[in-house]
Structures are given as structure tokens and as C-alpha cells.
């Protein structure tokens, strides 16, 4: 077993790692998010949008587990390590529903995520339900050699003491209305 802690091995070289406390928490957070995701049937939401509004033409991605962390600029020593800091750290899962408009240029996307935020000095731990709708078009500059694009999005964070199914359903229903108003669907 590798002796160095807090090191993340990228996928090109898989292997066991020894986890620091924060990373352990991250993975636990991901697990907790996943169970909420199932319980609240969030995948069903995307599937129903795909079925009822997109005639099944959209594509739903597999759930992806992600963690993110802020890097403290002021502490040189700490940024030298692959250390997850307690502030501004989240872990969770995310899925996307993607589809193209008829013209094939505009790409629409609904992202649905459930994230766990770790407690820090200012906040207690909390969960967030995160939903965005984005529309982007990508154009390739012939001379400049780069892609440009634009998107617009709506997002919702909710940080309740407890989730109820009704509460989540109402948020999702409102979001669907927003998508319709914005002519996404």
C-alpha cells in the first residue's frame, strides 16, 4: 500500500490510495447524495422530460461522482499538497440530459446534481439540489483556431433542513415551467 497520504491517482494508473480525512468525507458525501438521488427519483425526472417533451431523442449520461475544492491562495504550504480543504468543498453526483435542436448547432443540456457541502467555520454541513438548464452553441473560428460559445442557465440551490418529496416535486415542476418558458423544450 502506498505510504503517501492525500494523493489521488488518476485513472490512467489505477490503484489503491490512502485517503485523508477530507477525501474520506467526500466519498461518504457522494454515497449520501446517491441515496438521496435514488430516494427522490431524480433520474426519473430527466427520463420523463426526455420521454414527454423530447420524444426520447435526448441522451441521459451515466451519473458521475465529483468532488471539488477551493485552493487557499494565502497558504503556500497547503497549496503544495493535493489537500482537500474544509472550506468550499463539495462532493456529489451529477447527471445530464443532452439534446440538439433541429439545426444541429444549438446544444441543450439539463444538469441535475445533488451535492454535499462539508461543514466549516461559517456553515453547518448541508446538501444542495442543483438544477441547471443550459443552451450553448459552438462555433469554430477558422482563422483563430478556437471554439467560441454561449450559454444561458437557470440554477436552483436548495438547502433545507429536511427534504420532502413534495418540496422537491414542486421545485422540479417549477423548473420544467421555466424550461418551457425559455423555449428549451
Amino acid at each position: 500500500m502506498a505510504g503517501t497520504s492525500k494523493e489521488i491517482q488518476p485513472s490512467s494508473k489505477p490503484g489503491n490510495i490512502v485517503l485523508g480525512t477530507e477525501l474520506q468525507n467526500s466519498l461518504t458525501g457522494i454515497d449520501r447524495c446517491r441515496s438521496f438521488f435514488d430516494k427522490l427519483q431524480l433520474m426519473d425526472y430527466l427520463e420523463s422530460i426526455n420521454k414527454f417533451y423530447l420524444e426520447g431523442k435526448g441522451k441521459i449520461t451515466e451519473p458521475v461522482s465529483r468532488i471539488s475544492t477551493g485552493i487557499n491562495e494565502t497558504s503556500e504550504e497547503e497549496t503544495n499538497g493535493f489537500v482537500l480543504k474544509k472550506d468550499d468543498v463539495w462532493g456529489g453526483i451529477k447527471v445530464s440530459l443532452q439534446w440538439n435542436k433541429e439545426d444541429g448547432v444549438v446544444e441543450n443540456e439539463v444538469n441535475l446534481g445533488f451535492f454535499y457541502y462539508y461543514p466549516n467555520e461559517s456553515y453547518h454541513e448541508y446538501f444542495q439540489l442543483y438544477i441547471t438548464g443550459g443552451s450553448s452553441s459552438k462555433t469554430e473560428e477558422q482563422e483563430g483556431g478556437f471554439f467560441t460559445g454561449k450559454s444561458f442557465y437557470r440554477k436552483f440551490f436548495i438547502n433545507p433542513p429536511s427534504f420532502t418529496q413534495e418540496e422537491v416535486d414542486s421545485i422540479l415542476l417549477n423548473f420544467t415551467n421555466e424550461l418551457l418558458e425559455a423555449k428549451f423544450l
Partner: peptide
């Protein structure tokens, strides 16, 4: 309860 609406422009190469 936080609601955000926004727009982005990006450029990548």
C-alpha cells in the same frame, strides 16, 4: 433557497 439566472460566453482552444 437560491435561484440564479445567468449567461456565459466562452472561448476554448
Amino acid at each position: 433557497y437560491l435561484r440564479g439566472m445567468g449567461e456565459s460566453r466562452f472561448l476554448s482552444f
